[in-house]
Structures are given as C-alpha cells and as structure tokens.
Amino acid sequence: MRLVVDLNKCQGYAQCAFLAPDVFAMHGEESLVYDPHPEEQQRERVARAVAACPVQAITADGLRGAPGSAPRSALGVPDGR
C-alpha cells in the first residue's frame, strides 16, 4: 500500500508511531519519518494510525472502500504480537 503524510499538518503527536511502529517512526522528539510503501500486512495497523492522527495528516490508499481487504481479527491482534 501507499501512503503520504502532509508534514505541514503533522505536529509530531506520534500517534501513528505508537500504533504502527514498523511504518512510522519518530526521529527525535517531533520529527516523523515513515515508509511510504509499507507491506500489506501492515494494513490493519496503518488503518489505526490514519484514524488516530489528530490532524488527519496521513493519506493512504485502499484503506476504505476495499471490502474484504480489511483484517477480521476480533482481538485486533492478527499476527499475535
């Protein structure tokens, strides 16, 4: 999947880095670096990150409106981590 962060909007709240730590990382206290092309298995975590961003700075394609592609684990821990 693809994503981009509008880093003008981003205020370094790090919500994304908490929720999808393999995709988003803080480099220092406030500056965000991220992988614009995360693997498919990150989809569930990326969805959480996108929703949690308090300034809605993250745009990812194929998160909504892709029926059946979303994870279906009841506990939200599909890969058991």
């Binding site: 693809r2 994503l3 981009v4 480099h27 670096v33 991220y34 614009p36 092309h37 394609d61």
Partner: peptide, 14 residues
C-alpha cells in the same frame, strides 16, 4: 535513513 525504498515513494491517489 534506510526506512523507505527510493523506488517506492509513489504518491497515493486520493
């Protein structure tokens, strides 16, 4: 920083 591939920064389409 090694966090992303140079050939994979394609922009998501809105």
């Amino acid at each position: 920083l090694g966090m992303a591939s140079p050939i994979h920064t394609e922009l998501p389409h809105r």
